[in-house]
Amino acid sequence: MKLVPATILTGFLGAGKTTLLNRILREPHGHKIAVIENEFGQENIDNEILVQESNEQIVEMSNGCVCCTVRGDLILALGALAQKRDAGELSFDHIVIETTGLANPGPVAQTFFMDDEVASHYMLDAIITVVDARHAMQQLDEHEEAQRQVGFADKLLLSKTDLVSSDEVDTLVARLKRINPRAPVSKADFGQVPIGEVFDLRGFNLNDKLEIDPDFLAAEEHEHGHHECGEHCGHEHGHHEHHDHHHSRHSDDIAAFVFRSDRPFDTARLDEFLGGLVQVFGPRMMRYKGVLWMDGADRKVLFQGVHQMMGTDIGAKWPEDEPRGSKMVFIGKNLPAETFIRGLEQCLV
């Protein structure tokens, strides 16, 4: 049976998650969506409840969507919805999990890889983080949870941009990209965002495109001007960016750095080194992803992980006209960028 794509919707308290979700649930987009919420208020349901099974805390909306309140284990809730779907009692083709405003999305994401029953029914499509443009700078300064929500995101949606100046928006976007350069940023005031920017993003699927913001890389090159240094130029950029970040007014514990090389990796050495990294730094490695050039391989190797869970896949053949090389991005809390970069350099042929 086809896996049901799942979207994790997160964001700090008051960012506008529920506003976005309510708009999605009311829009005639043709999807039948099951929603799992940590807390479920009457204002979310309005007068659209058709069926309420109080024992199972499931409500069905008039447009065919289903909402489920979870105060217990997410694995059990996902399993119960899957059983009802398999039995023909419920119909849905997408699932949205709305976290509380103080939640760390990491454990929610890991649920989709750690439990066999969940993995047999669902595919994690993406983590969407709603960011309150009016209050985000202060929230990022004061709350690690806010930084984590940005760091884990596959897509960032800015709300309340009408309450701040364009310069303030630009400053916030620059900070968000320092924390997470691989997540595109869009505006979503009053929950207004096309459904295509929320669903079917395949942000967690291994694919050929390394989703690092091109402006992030260009800015590094412009700032450091190390083009004359040859092959080590790419390696150093992530290192310099990491330290540059701490010269700024806002010093976030969670930040990103990039490794690039135009030399192939030795497979055995890289496997051993990455295994060691995950053992030592796994709890602090929030998201990491890359396209790798392996020695002797005519196909790209695609690599990604969340905390201690890391996976690789074989990608497309290297095109004749495309220069071969590796690109990796690491997002985490107080990661020693230099240790990562020097170690990866030692794994090159």
Rank of each mutant, 00 (worst) to 15 (best):
P5H: 12
A6Y: 05
A6H: 10
I8Y: 07
L9C: 10
G16D: 04
G16W: 00
L20G: 02
L25A: 11
H29C: 06
H29Q: 08
H29K: 05
I36V: 15
E37I: 13
N38P: 12
N38A: 12
E39T: 11
I45R: 04
I49N: 04
V51D: 11
S54D: 12
I58M: 05
E60C: 10
V66H: 13
C68G: 05
V70Q: 13
D73S: 15
A80F: 11
A82Y: 05
A82S: 15
I97P: 08
P107A: 07
F113V: 06
E117P: 00
M123Y: 09
M137C: 03
L140N: 06
G151D: 01
F152V: 10
E168Y: 06
V169Y: 08
V173F: 02
I195W: 02
E197Y: 00
F199L: 09
L201E: 06
F204H: 09
N205K: 12
D208P: 05
D208I: 08
K209Q: 13
L210Q: 07
P214S: 02
F216M: 06
A218W: 07
E221P: 04
E223G: 09
E223V: 03
G225P: 04
H232Y: 05
H237D: 00
H245V: 09
A255W: 00
F257V: 04
F265Q: 06
A268W: 13
E272R: 07
V280Y: 12
G282S: 01
R287D: 01
K289I: 03
G290D: 10
A297F: 09
G315F: 10
G315T: 12
G315N: 02
G315L: 10
A316V: 12
P319A: 09
P319W: 06
R324M: 02
G325S: 08
G325L: 04
F330T: 00
I331G: 08
L335C: 03
I341N: 05
R342L: 13
R342M: 09
